[in-house]
């Protein structure tokens, strides 16, 4: 069933993709224009999605419960890290992100803190100082 749903989603996407291409017009340039190539690839993509709907593969095994929560938490950490990178500066946000990820892997808070501090400082020193790649060093409110 999941395979069928995914196939339907891809089918809808391919059709919308092909239809959207009709609006791309250019008054000059080559005979093909910007619309033709997307329309050409939309057709087989839609047919392949249709094949997925009609003859679906067996469904994948989903992990429920704790693993799923952990995946969600990992995703939240990654997104939160990116959002906080510039406001907090590289060392601080990396320290937080690393520690939380390490904790999520399943170690003690104390080890997670060690991982956070050592990895963030190591990477900051290596990339910002040794390799000369400027990273935001301090939180916004301090600089």
């Amino acid at each position: 069933m999941m395979n069928r749903l995914l196939g339907m989603a891809f089918l809808a996407m391919s059709i919308l993709y092909g239809l959207a291409a009709r609006d791309y017009k250019a008054s000059f340039g080559d005979p093909l224009g910007p619309a033709a190539f997307p329309m050409i690839i939309a057709i087989p993509a839609a047919l392949l999605s249709l094949a997925m709907v009609l003859r679906p593969d067996p469904d994948p095994q989903w992990e429920r419960g704790a693993p799923m929560l952990k995946q969600g938490a990992a995703l939240a950490i990654l997104l939160g890290y990116v959002a906080l990178l510039e406001p907090l500066g590289f060392p601080l946000s990396t320290m937080l992100g690393t520690a939380l990820l390490a904790r999520l892997v399943g170690t003690r808070w104390s080890y997670a803190a060690i991982a956070g501090i050592s990895i963030s400082l190591l990477l900051f020193f290596l990339f910002d100082r040794v390799l000369g790649l400027p990273l935001p060093a301090f939180p916004d409110f301090m600089s």
Binding site: F10, A20, G33, P34, F37, P44, A45, L48
Partner: peptide, 28 residues
Amino acid sequence: PVKTLFAAFLGLMLATVGLDPGTGTARY
């Protein structure tokens, strides 16, 4: 093989996002 081929087309679709190199039209 159906999934393999679709994966390739998905990549092609993603490749068309952005300014069209031929005419400068913004796509997707």
